[in-house]
């Protein structure tokens, strides 16, 4: 339902994406995994027509996203939970989305229930939302049109363990009912627990793809990930990572992608 075909993207002389090809089928969750700045967000923006590939093509449901009549009814997107007007209430964001898609306004309340935001929270302005609440709002917005395809960029960022557990259940449920879910993340364990398939990307190139079992190769996904990304991202940090964090070898911080423009 999602297909990347030889997608490359140049920013000047920098090759942000290099011949990226992969597909996401209906009824599955695909984790798009890579260190910060690997090109995940660029690829997802190209998929939904917000950026143009230098070569290659990306299609959703057999069409370039921008050629769909009303793509929001078939493809739900969450590209950056932080990209909201701080003066809007959560409910207003959903109302605007429902209006745009031609849905009854009662739909805002339905998706709020779905993501566990309360009526009171929805009446507050987003300026006062935690990142976790923004993620829930973003997922609610993505679900407005009851889509067949979900594209989520770092949806687990800022969610508390409870929220991550909730999101896993939601994505699983959506995939089981036929939805194609593509979610990007640098949080290995989050992806590992919910995804059926994994596409690993580093420095704009697909390093490996397959089912979680295939990529684990009997010694865990993390080991595969570290080996594959060791030469493609920054070198190891000079100090040891306190507490042996998620990506000790790669020296990357499991922080947000937002700090890196090329992400």
């Amino acid at each position: 339902m999602i297909e990347f075909r030889n997608v490359s993207k140049m920013y000047g002389k920098v090759r942000a994406l290099d011949d990226v090809s992969f597909t996401v089928g209906a009824g599955s969750v695909t984790g798009f995994l890579g260190p910060n700045g690997a090109g995940k967000s660029t690829a997802l923006r190209i998929l939904v027509g917000l950026a143009r590939p230098t070569s290659g093509s990306a299609t959703v449901l057999g069409l370039p996203y921008a050629e769909m009549g009303c793509p929001g009814l078939r493809v739900g997107t969450l590209l950056d939970a932080g990209a909201r007007h701080p003066g809007h209430t959560g409910r207003e964001v959903l109302t605007l989305g429902a209006m745009t898609l031609g849905l009854p306004r009662t739909r805002a309340g339905e998706v709020l229930d779905l993501v566990g935001l309360t009526e009171r929270e929805s009446r507050r302005t987003i300026g006062g939302y935690s990142l976790g609440m923004r993620q829930r709002l973003g997922i609610a917005h993505a679900l407005l049109g009851d889509p067949e395809v979900l594209v989520l960029d770092e949806p687990a960022n800022g969610l508390d363990p409870q929220g991550i557990h909730w999101m896993r259940g939601l994505l699983r449920h959506l995939a089981d009912s036929g939805c194609a879910v593509l979610l990007s993340s640098h949080l290995l364990h989050e992806v590992e627990q919910v995804a059926d398939n994994i596409v690993m990307i580093g420095r704009g190139r697909v390093l490996a793809q397959g089912t979680v079992e295939e990529l684990s190769r009997g010694r865990g996904l993390e080991q595969t990930f570290l080996e594959l990304t060791a030469h493609t991202d920054r070198g190891p940090g000079t100090g040891t990572y306190p507490g042996g964090g998620m990506f000790p070898g790669a020296g990357t911080h499991p922080g947000t992608d937002a700090g890196r423009g090329a992400a």
Partner: peptide, 21 residues
Amino acid sequence: PGPVTKDDTMNDTMDDTMNAD
């Protein structure tokens, strides 16, 4: 997509709603 209630102010657009094409 849902039960259209009386306070639904968008009835006038229902004819063209939900057409993704």
